[in-house]
């Protein structure tokens, strides 16, 4: 436990919350303000890792320069009609498709890590190698390797098929 871990947790929680809030906002100016908070938190995460110059460049470009550009454009456009929310109509089933694809990608990484291919690549450039196996170690100890993989593949395929079938309607 160190000070960096506490700052990482604070910054990452604010980052995920504000990035979702910027997509769900109806007015464009609120989208811009939440996005500024996201970019500021990314600059803070750069500072936590010790990349001071990158953090400074990130602050100057993303928190100062780009919001001025987008804000002037929002003023010029002066849109009267408001947006509907993010998840509307048939588009809300796209979320299920993306969730299925995301889970399939994680399963693929797990499958690669079993054959020690992924470990050998990562071992040269990372300090804590053992933390890669923490996520799936509980399920492997309970059920064994192959039933867990079958369940994961089934869950990913079911999510993707459900999303695609609703998307077609």
């Amino acid at each position: 436990m160190s000070l960096n871990s506490i700052f990482f947790m604070i910054f990452s929680v604010i980052l995920i919350f504000s990035s979702i809030a910027s997509l769900m906002a109806r007015r464009m100016i609120y989208t811009l303000l939440w996005a500024m908070l996201v970019f500021l938190m990314v600059a803070g995460l750069f500072l936590v890792q010790g990349a001071v110059y990158n953090s400074m460049v990130q602050f100057l470009i993303y928190v100062v320069a780009i919001p001025i550009l987008i804000g002037v454009t929002i003023m010029l456009i002066n849109q009267k009609q408001q947006n509907k929310g993010l998840f509307y109509g048939r588009g809300k089933y796209t979320l299920w498709i993306l969730l299925g694809i995301f889970s399939l990608i994680i399963i693929l990484g797990d499958f690669l890590s079993m054959n020690n291919i992924f470990f050998e690549i990562v071992k040269n450039c990372s300090v804590y190698v053992n933390s890669y196996s923490d996520l799936f170690s509980i399920s492997r100890n309970l059920l064994g390797v192959y039933p867990v993989l079958l369940l994961e593949f089934a869950a990913g395929i079911v999510l993707t098929i459900v999303g695609l079938s609703y998307y077609g309607k």
Partner: peptide, 16 residues
């Protein structure tokens, strides 16, 4: 963060 951005690109109707 990548997937939140991907959802925003694919689902939102506003260009900005």
């Amino acid at each position: 963060l990548f997937f939140i951005g991907l959802i925003g690109v694919s689902l939102s109707r506003n260009l900005i």
